[in-house]
Every structure is written in C-alpha cells, then in structure tokens.
Design a protein around this nucleic acid. Structure first.
Lengths: 191, 191
DNA sequence: TTCATCTTGTAGTATCCACTCCAGGTAACG
DNA sequence: CGTTACCTGGAGTGGATACTACAAGATGAA
C-alpha cells in the first residue's frame, strides 16, 4: 500500500484539478473525464490513487469546509472584527474558488442529508467562535443574546457572499463592515 | 397547436411532479424518468407537451422565483415587518418545497451565469421593495442608507433560511423578528 | 542488477441520460 | 358518424457516465 513519489505527485495534480473544477462548474458538474483531462492522466491512474470519484471530491470538500475558519491559533483572543475580516478575505481573496465551493456545499445541504450534517457541524463551531468573541467585547449581554447575534452576523455574511458571487458590483467588504457598526440593521439613530 | 383538455391536465401533473422533485432532489438531481414516473405518463406524452426537460424545469423555477415576493398588490403600503413576515411564511409555510428550490437557485447562480442573471434581477427588485418600506418608516435616513440596510436584512434572511433548512431546530421566525428590533446585530444597549 | 511493487494509458463494460419514433387511441367538431 | 387534430406509452437511439481489466513501463530497496 506504500506509495511511490510519482504517485503522490499525480495525486496532488488530480486534487488540484478537482479543486479548480469544483469552483468552476459546481459539485454536480464535475466529471471524471474533466478531472483526468485537466490533471493530464488516464482513468487508470486515477483509480490507482482514489477508490471512487466521490473520494477525491470529498477530500476537496473537507478542505473547503475547513478553510472557512481562519487560523485556529487565534481562538480565544481574536475580536469580532478579526473574524468578520477573515470571512471577507476568505470569500474575496485568492482562494475564492474554495469559497465558491463552500457556498455550494451549504446549498447542497438543502437536498443532501449527509452534506447537511457536515455543513451544520462546521456552522455550529463558527457560531460559537463568533459568540465567544462577542462575549469578550461585551460581557454584559449574556450568552444567549451573544449567540443570537453571532447567528445573525454569520447569516448576513453568508447572504452577502452569495450576492457578491452573483453580482460582481456588490461591495462585500463595505456591507460586512457595516455589520460591526453600533447602528444595527433595521433602525437608525434618527429614530 | 391548440391543446385538448386532457393534455392540459397531464401538463399540470407533470409540473406538479417536477415541482416536488426539485424540492426533494435539487435542480441537478431531477431526471426525465423521475418526472414521468411520478406523473404517471410516458416519455412520449412529456415531449408532446414540453420541448425539453429544461423547459418544464424552468417553468417551475420561474414560479419559485416569483413566489418569494409577497402579494404585489401591497407594494407602496406594506411595512418592513410585513415584508419580513412574508419571507418567513414563504420559507416555513406549506410551500416550503418552492422555497427550497429558490435557495438552490440562488446557489446555482454561483456556477451558472444564466441563473445568476435571473436570480439577481429578482433580488434587486426585492431590495428596492424593502428599501422603500424602510424609507416610509424612517424618511430621515436617506435612500443610500436604507438600501444598505435592505441588503443586510435580506442577506440575513437568506442566511437564516439556509440554516433553517439544514437545522430543523433553528428558530427562523424568532431570529427574523430580531432583525426588526432597534438593537441591531453587533452591538447592544449595554455598551 | 534483480525483482516485487507501484504507476500508467488504453480499450473496454454496464448503466444511465435526454430525447425520438411511431402505432394505436381519444377528443373535439360538423 | 367521419375526419382531423391531439394524446399516449413504450421501445429504441446515441452519447455521456463512472468504473474496470490489463499489458507495459517506472520505481526503489536489496
């Protein structure tokens, strides 16, 4: 079962091709031929390194879900602004292909239960992280209130991200920054 | 080209089957066989009534996009709370299959440009409607500010809706209602 | 070098897909 | 009733799909 060096290199080429394709055509649109063509290998090589097509896709998917969350070393110290900024960078940064995959996954959870569980687990962790950051800045509001606000901020960020991908003119960073302002969403100071 | 009564009834059965399937298995998972089996017709009957599979799917898709927006007769009179409540009812109500389709569409806009344009157009209209309701209630805030808040509310509602579909325990109505409170998202009164 | 193990491309296979063809049935109308 | 238009189901088509079998080559530890 030990792998040779060339085999591991081919494996990386295949994963890179899969990653790119997932961002471009979506999780349902990826075919084996597309992957092997882009990676420059035959089907035989693919199946020498992966059991099924799904295995390769899942490997990239896990990576995408993991990539939403910034640098775990900061846990317990980061501010809410840090977390929001990291999310914006994740969506609009260089690896936005991965971000695209992540949003598709969230949506595929609408029809695929296994995916739903996977996405929900990572969502829960993220809510906790946002909640804890909020509590550190405003300990007075209480855990329940902080969690509700964390859910709201994350929901808005997700919605903004979808809008941004669909409408290139949408200023994602600006709208995300507004979420941190004391003014809030619905009502203003001029009440 | 005129259609007989029986033909039109079959057409309805096919559209109903398509609608159900779209909600259950997603836009990529719908096959012709699944549609015709559920509708209880042969492939020949389908193609007597629709040019392609995509035509039937698009007919349901248009319906789903249209269904997000509540009763157009209220335009110009409704409050922000009315609009939010209507969105919540759309997602959690009896026709939540349609709502599921709508969210899938928004996500499919991530990889399908034609879908992206379609979704964006309806999104823009909805933002305007929310903005106008906001301006009616707080004329002082200005159109730009109102539009930004409309975007934020809609983004949060969309994010909440995805969470709700993925996590049945999520209290969508409660979180949606919080969007209307003067407190806002990030900061509280106890600052 | 030796040789077992791993890697590779090709030429398959079975299965599913959207879609077509067509013969026989049915609806509408005079 | 007769005629024409429409409706119907199912067998069949071509093409794409994921995946396999295998022969020939490359790799790497001794």
């Amino acid at each position: 079962m030990g792998r040779y060096r060339v085999g591991l290199e081919t494996r990386e080429r295949i994963l890179t091709a899969t990653r790119e394709l997932l961002g471009e055509v979506g999780i349902e649109g990826v075919t084996l031929k597309a992957i092997t063509d882009r990676a420059g290998v035959g089907a035989g090589s693919f199946y020498n390194l992966f059991e099924t097509k799904e295995q390769a896709v899942l490997e990239v998917v896990r990576e995408a879900i993991g990539a939403v969350d910034p640098d775990p070393s900061g846990v317990g110290r980061e501010s809410l602004a840090d977390l929001v900024e990291a999310f914006v960078r994740f969506i609009t940064g260089e690896a936005s292909g991965i971000a695209r995959i992540y949003l598709q996954l969230a949506a595929s959870g609408l029809t695929d239960e296994r995916m739903a569980r996977r996405v929900l687990r990572s969502h829960r962790r993220r809510v906790e992280r946002f909640r804890d950051a909020l509590l550190r800045e405003q300990p007075g509001i209480g855990a329940g209130e902080a969690e509700a606000r964390a859910e709201a901020i994350l929901a808005a960020l997700t919605g903004f991200a979808i809008t941004w991908f669909i409408d290139p003119r949408f200023d994602f960073a600006l709208h995300a920054a507004r979420l941190l302002q004391p003014v809030g969403v619905a009502s203003g100071g001029s009440e």
